[in-house]
Amino acid sequence: MGKYTGKMIISDLDGTLIPRGGAISPENRAAIADFVAEGGRFAIATGRTPEAAAGYVEGLPINAPSVFFNGAMLYDWVQKKVIKTLPLTAGDENDLWPKFARKALQDFPEACLEVYTAENCHIISPEANDDPRLPNEFYSYGHTDLGQLTDTTKTPWLKFFACDKHEHLEKYVVLAEKMGVAELANGFYSEDNYYEFVAKDVSKGSMLAFIREQLPGIEIIACGDYLNDNEMLAAADIGIAPANAHEDTKKIAKHIGCAVEDHLLAWIVKNIA
C-alpha cells in the first residue's frame, strides 16, 4: 500500500502531458514514476493509435487501461492487447460512411482524409494533401483507395478524420449533417484544423465507465486541454485542465492547473493526487 493506492491519473497527450511539438519533461516523468511507485495507476487517453503513442510515452510506467482513437479503443498497455473497440461502422446499417467519404473527397479537394481501423491508418485522399504532422509521427500509415474499405462488416472503421482549413471543416460538418452521418456519430474538433468522427456516444469520457469495471473503486483524476477531452473531465472524479487549455474545456474542469509547459503532471501529483 502506498499513499496513492486507489487513485488513477489518466492524461491526454498533446497539450497536456506533452507541450505541442515537444516531449515529456523530466519533471513530468519523475512525478509519474513517483505516483506509480506509491501505488497509483497511470493511463493515457489520446486520439492516436497505440503505435503512434508509443514513441512519445516510451519509458513511462503505464499500468492502467488506456484510451485510444478518442474513445473507440480501450487497450491494455502492459499486455499489449486490445480490451474493447467501439467501431464507427459495423456493417450494412452504416453504409452511409463510405458514401460520405466519397462525397467529402469530391467536395473538399484540399483535405487530408483518413480512415482508422484497428490495424492501420488509411489515407484516402491524394498524397499531396497529407497532414504535415505525419512524417513526425511514430506509426505506419498508407494511402489506400476508398474502394478497398467499403465493406465495413469486414473492415470496421474506428475513426474518420479530416485535416483542412477551419472554414472548410465548417462546411464539412454541414455536409455530414445533410447526409445523415452526423446522427450516427460523435463529431468534434480535436484541433482548430482537425475534425474527427467516432461512434455515437463514444468519447474518451465514455471509456471511463469500462475502466471502472476493470478497476472497481478507483478514484479517477483526468486531465486534458481540448474539446475532445471535455467528456473525460466531466466523467472523472476530478477533472483538471492546464492554464492554457481551450476556454470551454476549462469550464468543465474542477481545477485549473499550471500551463502545460510548466509540467502539469508534476503539478497534479503535488497538488491534487
Rank of each mutant, 00 (worst) to 15 (best):
P242W: 01
G71I: 04
Y139S: 15
H255Y: 13
K154C: 10
L88H: 06
T153P: 06
S125Y: 03
G257Q: 02
T46M: 02
I18R: 00
P65M: 07
N129P: 05
D131E: 11
P50T: 07
L17N: 02
C112D: 15
Y139K: 14
G205N: 09
T89Y: 05
R133A: 14
A253W: 04
Y194T: 08
I218N: 04
I272Y: 02
L233Q: 09
M1N: 12
F197N: 11
L169Q: 03
V260S: 01
N193F: 14
C223R: 00
E137Y: 13
L184G: 06
N193Q: 13
A54I: 07
W77C: 12
A118V: 15
L227M: 13
D95W: 12
N129C: 09
P98D: 01
V173C: 09
L105P: 02
G71Q: 05
G22I: 01
T144Q: 05
L215M: 13
E58A: 15
D12V: 01
D262S: 02
G217D: 04
S25L: 03
A243I: 04
N193C: 13
P132F: 11
V181C: 11
E219W: 08
S206V: 03
G71S: 07
G39K: 03
K178G: 10
E219T: 13
P156R: 00
A33L: 11
E213Q: 15
F210D: 15
Y141G: 11
D130Q: 14
A23R: 14
E93V: 12
P109L: 09
P26N: 05
S66C: 01
P156K: 00
K204W: 07
A52F: 10
N193K: 12
L208M: 09
M207N: 09
E51N: 10
G187A: 10
I268P: 00
A118H: 10
S25D: 07
N136W: 13
Q148E: 14
D92K: 13
A30S: 14
P61A: 10
I268K: 02
G187S: 11
A243E: 14
G147Y: 00
G205T: 08
S206Y: 03
Y194D: 10
F197H: 13
H143A: 11
K3P: 03
S203D: 07
V260Q: 00
L265M: 13
V260A: 02
D145K: 13
H122T: 00
T5P: 04
R133P: 09
G257Y: 03
L208E: 04
A111C: 10
D130F: 12
A37T: 08
E127G: 07
P61C: 08
